[in-house]
Write a protein that binds this DNA or RNA. Sequence first.
DNA 1: TCAATAAAAGATATAAAGGTCTTAATATCT
DNA 2: AGATATTAAGACCTTTATATCTTTTATTGA
Lengths: 172, 172
Amino acid sequence: MTNQMKIISDKIVLNKNSHYIWAKSKSRMFSKACEYGIRATLYIAQKSLNGQRASLKAITHEIDSPEAFTAKILQQLAKAQVVRSVKGPHGGFEIAREDIDSMRLSEIVNAIDGDNIYKGCGLGLKACNAQKPCPVHHKFTAIRNDLKTMLQETRLLELATSLETGLTFLKR
Amino acid sequence: MTNQMKIISDKIVLNKNSHYIWAKSKSRMFSKACEYGIRATLYIAQKSLNGQRASLKAITHEIDSPEAFTAKILQQLAKAQVVRSVKGPHGGFEIAREDIDSMRLSEIVNAIDGDNIYKGCGLGLKACNAQKPCPVHHKFTAIRNDLKTMLQETRLLELATSLETGLTFLKR
DNA sequence: TCAATAAAAGATATAAAGGTCTTAATATCT
DNA sequence: AGATATTAAGACCTTTATATCTTTTATTGA
């Protein structure tokens, strides 16, 4: 490490010409869009259970997310019929009671990130399958299936209720 | 869908001004850099077991990856002492036999992507923990731990051997 | 010691994700 | 009908990940 380099954070390093050298990619289960989408949906569900709509402003305040970006994500969720949007005064976002009961976490994730996280190959190989497996294929199949099952079994109602009772949190 | 829009693929859509509208982010367990890194390391291990070095050219041919990008990743792996590099004629990359025995998949992943995938919160919350859990915290803890355990227990030797015996594959 | 070979380092380019801003559309209330 | 509130749509900007190209350094063998 010479004095010509500049450490920006523990992850980001610039050289003498301010060029980005290397930082470990913050790999995550879901994209940030998806994370915001899940958090927003949970808040909307909670409000809906109380017979109230959630406005964009209230949502972004409550889940601590960038407003304009969150608006885009909510548009997608509305198109995918995960949430319903209502324009005009007293408008906002809502989810029908019966949908809160039946909707699974997988539907939210699918609307934003698709299903690659539990369908694709762990090493990114296109034609990886049980007949022509990649070296980590069988190792990943189990974990992937667990994730898939969990997302498909977890109900929106359950998550919204744990928020309502103060057992879980959407911020920080 | 108006006639002013252009469908590029099932995921990518451009509007009349050729602006990108929305495509589900290809979320994956590991970054592409990490995927190439794992595949490259496995190939190098296989060659090393046969007493041979693997050149960059041979690696990129064998794992079907972009050459210059793979070179960068191999530099990182060399710095992290996952592989050893040798310059000059007959040079290339190699892994010591004892390291093939002891090295775990987690060491390769850590060198490229870090450990966020099995440490971070599923909803991206900074201060999510068992005391102040996010709504999906407990659901994810199990899956995350399984992933962590699998990466820490899987030995390079095991994976390289399954390649050697033609049970698994690195291409396609 | 010189030519050839192979990786390291550095600079730059391109694509995708993340995020903002402005204008349009729609609903409500007076 | 007009003023206001609220989301939708579109254009644009910024940062990060992915990828390439050029120059430098180390090693080998004639």
